[in-house]
Measured scan of single mutants.
Amino acid sequence: EESVKIVRLVKNKEPLGATIRRDEHSGAVVVARIMRGGAADRSGLVHVGDELREVNGIAVLHKRPDEISQILAQSQGSITLKIIPATQE
């Protein structure tokens, strides 16, 4: 059973501070990098390897990473992410 986590981040004009990529094996959209000091890093709630399912209620599974980045870039104020946390080894 996948544990889905709802994360709310507050982002002003600054970038979210995370990059995403598509996992070639599973097809999932995952967090590739977290930039120090960005909104994602400061929240402490988003981690490399987390699978991104939704951004502000928009399912991202069938979107290209550049489309998802665009949605994230255009979002201001509160951003709600639905993520499946990376499995902690």
Rank of each mutant, 00 (worst) to 15 (best):
I58P: 01
S43M: 04
R22Y: 13
E24D: 09
R53L: 15
V46W: 00
R22F: 09
L61T: 15
K63Q: 09
I34N: 01
L81Q: 03
A39D: 03
G49M: 03
A40F: 11
T19Y: 14
L61Q: 15
K82Q: 06
M35R: 13
S69E: 14
L45T: 09
V10G: 12
Q76K: 12
S69Q: 15
R42F: 04
E54W: 01
R33N: 14
E24Q: 12
H25I: 13
S43Y: 04
R33S: 15
I68Q: 02
Q88A: 12
G38H: 03
D41V: 02
E24V: 11
E51R: 06
V46Y: 02
Q76A: 09
E54L: 01
I68E: 02
A28Q: 11
G77F: 05
E24M: 11
L61M: 14
I83V: 11
S43D: 04
G49P: 00
H47G: 07
V29Y: 14
P65F: 12
K82P: 02
I71E: 09
H62T: 12
Q70W: 09
I71W: 09
I34R: 01
D66T: 09
H62W: 07
R8Q: 11
R53V: 15
K13E: 13
S69Y: 14
A32V: 09
G77W: 03
R8V: 10
I34L: 10
P85I: 00
K13Y: 10
E51P: 00
Q76C: 12
H62K: 13
S26L: 05
V60F: 05
I84R: 11
T19K: 09
H25N: 12
S43T: 07
R22K: 13
V10Y: 13
G49S: 02
S75C: 13
D50C: 00
S43H: 04
G37Q: 04
R22A: 08
T80H: 08
V48P: 07
G57A: 03
S78F: 11
I71P: 02
R8C: 09
G38C: 06
D23S: 08
L16R: 01
V55I: 14
S69K: 12
G37S: 05
V55F: 03
P85E: 08
P85H: 07
D50R: 00
V48R: 05
R21Q: 12
D41H: 11
I68C: 02
T19M: 11
D66A: 12
I6V: 13
E24G: 08
S43F: 02
R8F: 04
R42M: 08
T87G: 12
V48K: 06
G57Q: 04
E51I: 09
